[in-house]
């Protein structure tokens, strides 16, 4: 199952929209850097159910409180995610 990684803010570019267009049930979504702003209101940004993660440090840095549906992770858990998923797709700009 694909791991999608986004680092752009939800309205700051097309990365989130493009990613959701290629998201398949069972894939995982990881929000890092500016993408964590979407983690505050997943429903509003149409984030998928289930496997949605956000880098806790990036959220804390930006004063974003993660919604219930989003799992905060650290770098170690990020590595585990990368090991568990193939392929990994970066939606970085």
């Amino acid at each position: 199952m694909t791991l999608h990684i986004i680092n752009q803010s939800p309205l700051g570019g097309s990365a989130l929209q493009d990613c959701l267009g290629s998201f398949v049930e069972g894939d995982a979504l990881l929000l890092i850097e500016d993408a964590v702003y979407a983690a505050a209101s997943p429903a509003e940004h149409k984030l998928p159910q289930g496997q949605v993660f956000a880098l806790a440090a990036d959220a804390q840095a930006r004063g974003v409180t993660l919604a219930q549906a989003v799992t905060g992770i650290d770098e170690t858990a990020w590595v585990d995610l990368c090991v568990a998923h193939t392929p990994i797709v970066s939606w970085f700009r």
Binding site: M1, T2, G21, S22, D27, P87, S90, F92
Partner: peptide, 14 residues
């Protein structure tokens, strides 16, 4: 639908 197509690869370069 590009999702299933992308899923079939080992490595994706963006």
């Amino acid at each position: 639908d590009t999702g299933p197509f992308i899923r079939g690869f080992d490595q994706v370069l963006s």
